[in-house]
Amino acid sequence: MADRRRINGPPGATMAPVFEDDAGQPEIKNGKGRDRAPNVIRKTFLKTGVTPSASGSAYLEFEGSSKSGVSGLKLSCTVHGPRSLPRSSPFSPHIVLSAHVKYAPFATKQRRGYLRDPSERDLGTHLETALRGAIIADRWPKSGVDIIISIIEGDQDRETSKSQGDETWDMMNVLSGCITVASAALADAGIDCVDTVAGGVAALVQDAGEDSTPRIVVDPIPSDHEKVLGACCVAYLPTRDEVTNLWFKGDLPASDAGLYTQLVENGIQASRNANRVLVECLGEATS
């Protein structure tokens, strides 16, 4: 899909030169790995009301990894609405929710185009599912709300390109951030929700080293670990104890049902943690 309306960058990917590391630190490939406890999420910065022109907005930032060259996730979300639907659209007894997720062209190692690619559309659908459960949709008949998220910086390890498969796992982290930031922005816009919804990720990872056994960690950074065996992203409403969106990906034997349950429980735990940040941020904004 060529975008002819704008002047695009060169079609081929260009790589910044990478110099060989000093002799002192050849181990950087294996990295320091994760330096948080398995059940601790990264430090999160969240602020609402950053875009005055939108009816609601929020900005979220995850702390980067301890490793150099790995940046954190930076998201900005604006909510436009509730506003009346265009005249041509059919009657709707509910609020019509539409979520757009877009990576900035410079957000990832691989340059992103201006048109939304399938993975971005997919994220949008996930986000819609997560939020539709939280919004009290029938209080706003005949109206629509647009939620627009731009990913200013994705958390990817810029140092290595080996981790090709990581992109799929990165999407889970991005989705959890999107859910949290969208929930904050919805609250900022004053749209009625049953509860604040926050995203959490848990993954079954294998660390480097011969004798390591797979373990479950929350809020994983794929490049910290040797291999990610499976991960799930959960959107969770804490006061109702309900999950609005569950996305699991991986390769788990069905015989070990406990593993799946543990993953989801850890995801919920991560989501609770994120929700605490969310509630605090909203409290600050109102006080």
Partner: peptide, 12 residues
């Protein structure tokens, strides 16, 4: 069969 779980998605 020995099944394995590959992915789960919530459908709206």
């Amino acid at each position: 069969r020995n099944l394995k779980l590959l992915s789960i998605r919530t459908v709206d």
